[in-house]
């Protein structure tokens, strides 16, 4: 990582957020509720003509099965690195002014934001495109896992897609929806990998 990186591995207990920051890019993981205004302000720039903000929220069902709550866990240092790699490459590719990506961890109640992505650019087209690409790449690569707890008991670890990171060749399963949906909410894409707590 570049020398201008900052990190706060020991964050205050009331604001448990770990982050990386570098050249217009900010990525963070937090167990606190996400704040749309603050992530927007992170990319605000006088050179920007547009800020695109994406909020992924947690849905109350998976394929019709009622979901009580979702819980996210992460390999935090690696997830932050991967998020920063995505952010800085998209910033260069789309000539962005800023890109901020914050993922919530721990239990996220239904209907709340699990991820926020804010992108600023001189013109809106680049901001729209970069925002969508940031989400898709995040869902494909960032080392965060989501467990759905069902209303009737039991839970399942979701997988966003098959055949990519986290899935070795020759083991692909049917039914993965893959990328391109773009709604990015808590329980839409992919399929379960393992059921636990069913006893």
């Amino acid at each position: 990582m570049a020398s201008q990186d900052q990190i706060n591995p020991s964050s205050a207990p009331d604001e448990p957020e770990t982050f990386l920051q570098q050249e217009g890019c900010y990525v963070a993981l937090t167990t606190s509720p996400l704040n749309l205004q603050s992530v927007t302000d992170r990319v605000r720039s006088p050179q920007a003509g547009a800020i695109v903000l994406f909020a992924g929220t947690t849905r109350d069902n998976f394929a019709g099965q009622p979901v009580k709550q979702l819980e996210y866990t992460a390999y935090e240092p690696l997830a932050l690195r991967t998020m920063m790699t995505i952010a800085s490459s998209l910033r260069a590719k789309h000539d962005l002014r800023g890109l901020a990506m914050v993922h919530r961890l721990g239990v996220v109640p239904i209907g709340e934001e699990s991820i926020l992505i804010a992108v600023s650019a001189p013109h809106r087209q680049a901001a729209w495109r970069a925002g969508e690409e940031a989400l898709e790449e995040c869902k494909e690569r960032v080392e965060v896992w989501k467990k759905e707890e069902f209303a009737h008991g039991g839970g399942v670890w979701r997988a966003n897609r098959d055949g990519k990171r986290g899935q070795r060749e020759g083991e692909s399963r049917e039914g993965g929806e893959g990328v391109g949906k773009g709604d990015g909410n808590g329980s839409s894409e992919g399929q379960g990998t393992e059921v636990d707590g069913q006893t």
Partner: peptide, 10 residues
């Protein structure tokens, strides 16, 4: 060392 199952962020 870490075992990294298929990810599911978002």
């Amino acid at each position: 060392v870490a075992i990294i199952p298929p990810v599911s962020s978002g």
